[in-house]
Write a protein that binds this DNA or RNA. Structure first.
Lengths: 129, 129
DNA sequence: CAGGATCCACGTCGATACTG
DNA sequence: CAGTATCGACGTGGATCCTG
């Protein structure tokens, strides 16, 4: 609430504290990134090549697949290996850290499957009222 | 990968299956929503009023606070109660389902705190190579 | 096969001003 | 206090075309 609490925000910034630097927010942003988790889940089945991932996620564009894989590689969640065949083939593998992230997400996945019906119900009720 | 796998996507759609309707994706979108989790975490400390939440999250705008709270209420994760005082006061409370979502997120929160340093390291390494 | 580059439509979000 | 309404900036992502 910038208009009400600009003061506090400014204090934080003056002290070199950036609320957007919070680890939880950073990881949440990652999780939020629309494709990251789907790709990680796919790689949980084993290493896969670029187009194989594309086939597994029919509604992703090449652009986004490339970009998301770069981000994941950059953050050490996925390993990229190029094989000098012709035409070239590239294999993506879940890193140990990527695996541990998926493990940490398990609770959330289960929750999603268990509670989505409740959410839909809540939405219906809300739509009435 | 629309150009490569448009066929498969079309098949799915023809069968009435919408990949974006996947519970996991829906919940992930929710988690992604930049402010939802921060608000839920804040409400974990107990019920809070509109401006109290704003004070706790200095860099949220009134617009986003309102909108996010509406979404949470709509999905049954948060309860909204109006007290007819003057000026009016509104209290937001975590619902049981909201609490269970937070519990399901615990693993992820812990992971974020434990592994964020590793991610930063990976980024540094990547920035070099 | 595995991308890189470019263009553009769209949705999200912040800032601002106003209300019961 | 707790919002609503409106506008404009910005980022994200899809479509398309090109390359080693």
């Amino acid at each position: 609430m910038r208009d009400v609490q600009q003061n506090r925000l400014d204090e934080w910034k003056a002290q070199g504290f950036d609320p957007t630097a919070c680890p939880v927010r950073q990881v949440l942003d990652h999780v939020a990134a629309k494709w990251t988790m789907l790709i990680l889940l796919e790689l949980a089945n084993g290493p896969a090549r670029f187009n194989a991932l594309g086939r597994a996620l029919p509604d992703i564009s090449k652009r986004m697949l490339t970009q998301t894989l770069r981000d994941l590689e950059r953050d050490g969640l996925v390993t990229r290996e190029v094989f000098p065949t012709k035409p070239p083939s590239v294999e993506y593998t879940l890193s140990p850290m990527g695996q541990s992230l998926l493990s940490a997400m398990d609770g959330l996945f289960d929750w999603a499957n268990d509670n989505f019906d409740h959410i839909k119900q809540a939405r219906d009720v809300y739509a009435q009222g």
